[in-house]
Amino acid sequence: MEEFADIELTVNGEKIAKRVEARQHLVDFLRIELGLTGSHLGCEHGVCGACTVRVDGSIVRGCLMLAIQADGADVWTIEGMSDAGEIEDLQEAFIARNALQCGYCTPGMLLTSAEMLEAGRKMTRAEIREFLSGNYCRCTGYHAIVDAVETVMESRFGG
């Protein structure tokens, strides 16, 4: 039984092999070991959602998963999602609607919104709010974020 282990995973489409400490969570691994600082840490106990990353196709709290558990996983962060162009319309809508001020929550908001858009249908504002309920924003009051997501749903899935 070891406090370290060798892991292999894919991050933003790139294969990575590293030795990690068992106690290191996924976002510290991404930030410290890989320099991917787009995933943020707010509360570090699963409440705020700033650490949201996509693991094997679903969003997770990056602070509540150990890096060692991502062995073999396919991890996507805001850096990779931005570069891939998958959420370009969402990012543009966030800017157009002023859906961010300090930007700390934004990567998490975008990843959560991206998963919401994967449902492939228009949602009500109440549904959008419910889906985003695990992500705290202390600047915008959420209204503009809901506007941005709604805008993208309208353009992707029709009025």
């Binding site: 570090e44 106990h45 150990l66 558990q69």
Partner: peptide, 23 residues
């Protein structure tokens, strides 16, 4: 360690100090 959604916060807050995690 299953989903870790309750265990990990207690570890991060050091409310729990197990010697071993069995995933």
């Amino acid at each position: 360690l299953a989903g870790g959604q309750s265990l990990m916060p207690t570890l991060n807050m050091r409310l729990s100090r197990p010697r071993l995690l069995i995933d």
